[in-house]
Write a protein that binds this DNA or RNA. Structure first.
Length: 574
DNA sequence: GGGCTAGGCGCC
DNA sequence: AAAGGGCGCCTAGCCC
């Protein structure tokens, strides 16, 4: 059963029963209850934008099992090389290309009533966000997508899996926002005070930074503002140091008394600006950090985030991620996800064998391809990213001889990109075309009057795009594996059912009180927040989901995806 | 004051 | 130790 949720022209919510062809008007204040009622029939909810529709439902205590996110599906179908029956111009003026709604700071969002339009009205002049697609527009888009899928022939089932996984990911993203990462302000502040000294007054630097700045100045014979790259570069050169930049790795090579305090300053200044007291004030409330994930936000299918930097939580502050009393964190990541995905999608049994039951890089060493684990890692990264120089460029060809199928797959993807072509992931997400500027460069280089400089520029640009498409197929298919993993974890955790463990306060929201739920996702890593008595069961769910994801994507291909998994109270202890 | 880029660095 | 792919976000410094 499919139910389409959208707004009538009047702005009132409507539920279109797509199978029965019946339109049901719903009063704004009855919508959440009505969705909950209909959820008993296990429908697939079809809607314009998961973030818009699902966040208020979650806040009202309503979980849905399945959805189809029209905006995300449209982006995939428009670009997919497996789809030629989808007119990219159809509906182009209906605002589907608009990015999802703007970030609303936590405090104000919490106060936003269900389905209020004030946010949009307050930003008059902007394009309407996706939520305001009328029921008619949403239905038309849905029909275009169905028709495109039906015409996709043999690729349709993989595309359908991709769309289902993408939509399930969008549900997870909204649910992570609702549940929130348990974040201990006191623990975070302890980290900051230990590193930087007490919180300074507004406009002042923390004590430790001032001390280090003075040390640097003394060593360089004059006051220095280390936050200013230009000032710092001048001071270093005045002291007789030959430097091209102020990057930490370049400074590390220098032997001078200013360097140690300078590197320490850079590290601490980074902590302060990225995850200092200001970040705590803005992003942590009621013991939760609520990331604003953007599923499908990266062309490869990886998620992006907007604000808060949830994809870059530095190791230094992970001690602040602490389970609620009586709860645990199940922290799991996949060892070497991308090379394993590559081995499976290429059907490279030799590489699968190197990975089976052990560290993939150790397996490569045992096969005698390279001498050390570090070399194996650098070679593999070099092969997947297209390294042309350095150790990666030197070592990657050895992998080509040992694992010709896997390396052939990425080499082929690179060649397609260098010619300006489109590559696709296993499930059918396709790379974008290179820009008009890029094509102009190639075209200029092929003219009879092309100069050597034209040819050099074109070749450089072609190789650069080839590195992108080379990586696209691996990164994108790994993202698909991760989406399937997330979707299976979500289903498995829900099936565990509720416990009597009250969440501390209501921080996790009404849907997750007493229930194990996902609270973090980072490309190949998840964190589940679970009642202690359910933690082992949740860990089993996470493991089983990894096996299921592998089956969904690769059938019975002989590649395993082992997890590093820990049940802990603190993220930092995983 | 806002918009922009560059440099730099955090994550995978 | 970086390189080689993908990002977000901070500051400084420049522009209008």
């Amino acid at each position: 059963m499919q139910l389409l949720l959208a707004r009538a022209a009047s702005g009132a919510p409507s539920i279109v029963h797509l199978d029965a062809g019946v339109v049901e008007r719903v009063a704004e204040d009855r919508l959440a209850a009505r969705v909950a009622e209909l959820e008993a029939d296990e429908p697939r909810w079809v809607w314009s934008d998961t973030r818009h529709w699902y966040r208020p439902l979650l806040a009202a205590g309503v979980r849905v099992e399945r959805c189809h996110d029209l905006r995300l599906a449209r982006a995939i179908l428009r670009a997919s090389a497996a789809v030629d029956a989808y007119d990219p111009e159809a509906g182009a003026d209906a605002g589907w290309e608009a990015p999802p709604e703007e970030h609303v700071p936590t405090a104000r969002h919490a106060a936003t009533p269900l389905f209020e339009l004030g946010e949009f009205e307050a930003s008059a002049g902007l394009k309407p966000p996706a939520d305001l697609h009328s029921a008619a527009e949403s239905m038309a888009e849905h029909e275009r997508q169905e028709a495109a899928l039906e015409a996709a022939g043999a690729d349709a089932s993989r595309l359908r899996l991709l769309l289902a996984a993408e939509s399930a990911g969008a549900l997870v993203a909204a649910e992570i926002h609702a549940g929130g990462i348990p974040w201990r302000r006191d623990a975070h502040e302890s980290v900051l005070v230990a590193a930087l000294g007490d919180r300074p007054p507004v406009g002042r630097k923390p004590r430790r930074l001032e001390e280090l700045q003075a040390e640097i100045g003394a060593a360089l014979d004059g006051p220095v503002q280390p936050d200013s790259q230009a000032d710092l570069l001048r001071a270093l050169r005045r002291a007789g140091l030959t430097v091209r930049s102020t990057r930490a790795w370049e400074l590390q090579e220098l032997d001078h008394p200013a360097i140690a305090p300078l590197l320490e300053y850079k590290k601490l200044a980074r902590l302060l600006s990225a995850n200092g007291w200001h970040w705590l004030d803005e992003w942590v409330r009621d013991g939760r950090f609520r990331p604003d994930y953007l599923p499908g936000g990266v062309v490869t299918g990886r998620w992006a985030t907007r604000g808060g930097g949830a994809l870059q939580l530095p190791k230094a502050v992970r001690g602040a991620v602490v389970a609620d009393p009586g709860w645990r964190l199940v922290v799991a990541d996949v060892a070497q996800l991308e090379p394993r995905v590559l081995a499976a999608m290429a059907g490279d049994d030799a590489m699968a064998e190197a990975a089976r039951g052990r560290d993939l890089y150790d397996g490569i060493v045992q096969r005698g391809v390279v001498a050390t684990r570090d070399e194996a890692k650098v070679a593999m990264l070099g092969a997947m990213y297209g390294a042309s120089s350095g150790d990666g460029g030197r070592l990657a060809p050895r992998l080509g001889r040992a694992y010709p199928r896997a390396m052939g797959l990425v080499d082929e993807a690179a060649q397609v990109g260098e010619r300006g072509g489109v590559v696709s992931t296993l499930l059918g997400r396709s790379s974008p075309l290179p820009s008009a500027d890029w094509r102009a460069l190639q075209s200029a280089a092929s003219q009879p009057d092309a100069t050597p400089a034209d040819e050099r520029r074109a070749r450089t640009a072609a190789r650069e795009w080839g590195r992108f498409t080379r990586n696209f197929v691996v990164q994108g298919t790994a993202a698909e594996w991760a989406l399937c993993w997330l979707a299976e974890i979500r289903i498995g955790l829900h099936a565990l059912g509720p416990t009597d463990s009250a969440s501390s306060g209501t921080a996790s929201g009404p849907v997750f009180a007493g229930r194990a739920h996902l609270v973090y996702f980072l490309h190949d890593e998840v964190i589940v927040h679970a009642p202690a008595e359910q933690a082992e069961a949740a860990a089993d769910v996470v493991r089983a989901a990894a096996e299921r994801a592998a089956e969904l994507l690769f059938g019975d291909a002989p590649v395993d995806f082992p997890l590093d998994l820990a049940v802990v109270e603190r993220y930092a202890d995983a």
